[in-house]
Write a protein that binds this DNA or RNA. Structure first.
Length: 255
DNA sequence: ATGGTTGCTTAGCAA
């Protein structure tokens, strides 16, 4: 089973690329973030024509997540199931081929010390609590998405430049590591232990041309799934050419 | 400290 996570930065702006990529790669599951579209305006017909089901959690202008899959997604749940009244569409999960797929668009956090950063840390804690409540590490669970976290400096082309950023700050990494101690493995890391592979390059400052990237799009798996993980890669070519997303797809295969 | 670019929506926000 091939599972992919891809922050498309607006699904409507990326329609052509998305359909070409689906046709070429034929993933079993494609988790998308930053749809920037409402459920009403989601291009269901195009996805159906491409042979995929769509489970969608959208909102106007910002955020938005979806799970596309070749077989029908079951038990779809949108949003973190807790008491907080959160209008931001950042989480969707579904069971596909017996595995629980959890797809998150973690908050960026803007700047350390800002209200948005407080929200980022709170959202990550809420997701940790959600995992505790709704599933367990002895099940087949995969948590994927744009984490807006570079787990360590080997995931950052220029660690000095990014040291104080919300993607690398120690509190950010501490919040991320709670998912590992809960029972998740970073399966991309397992297959690329040396680091230096990136998934996001800022549109600004010619970051891609200068190879100034970070690995912030991640695939975490519970033990039973991690044991079946046979390959992991980044489709760096998808960041090239006309009108790319600023993120590249991360592809992980399970036997 | 600021700027650089992209997308949604059309002035300003978010990333």
């Amino acid at each position: 089973m091939k599972i992919v996570t891809w922050n498309v930065n607006s699904i409507r702006a990326r329609e052509e690329r998305l359909l070409a990529w689906l046709k070429k790669e034929k993933p079993d599951v494609l988790c998308l973030q930053e749809l920037k579209v409402t459920n009403e305006k989601f291009p269901y017909d195009l996805i159906t024509e491409a042979g995929y089901y769509s489970a969608v959690h959208g909102q106007p202008t910002y955020n938005g997540v979806a799970i596309l899959s070749l077989t029908e997604p079951e038990d779809v749940v949108c949003g973190i199931q807790d008491d907080e009244d959160d209008p931001q569409a950042r989480l969707i999960e579904a069971t596909v081929n017996g595995a629980r797929i959890i797809n998150g668009y973690f908050p960026n956090g803007k700047e350390v010390g800002s209200d948005k950063y407080e929200y980022k840390l709170r959202w990550m804690q809420r997701l940790s609590d959600h995992m505790e409540r709704t599933t367990s590490p002895d099940k087949d669970v995969v948590l994927v998405g744009d984490f807006n976290v570079a787990p360590d400096d080997s995931d950052v082309a220029d660690p000095n430049q990014w040291a104080g950023s919300v993607l690398c700050y120690p509190d950010t990494r501490k919040a991320y590591e709670k998912f590992l101690s809960w029972g998740f493995t970073d399966v991309f890391r397992k297959h690329n232990p040396d680091g230096g592979v990136h998934t996001w390059w800022d549109y600004r400052r010619l970051a891609f041309q200068r190879n100034n990237g970070l690995r912030i799009d991640l695939v975490l798996a519970t033990k039973s799934m991690a044991e079946r993980c046979v390959a992991a890669s980044v489709d760096r070519d998808e960041r090239k050419g006309d009108k790319p997303s600023d993120h590249a797809p991360v592809i992980v295969e399970f036997s």
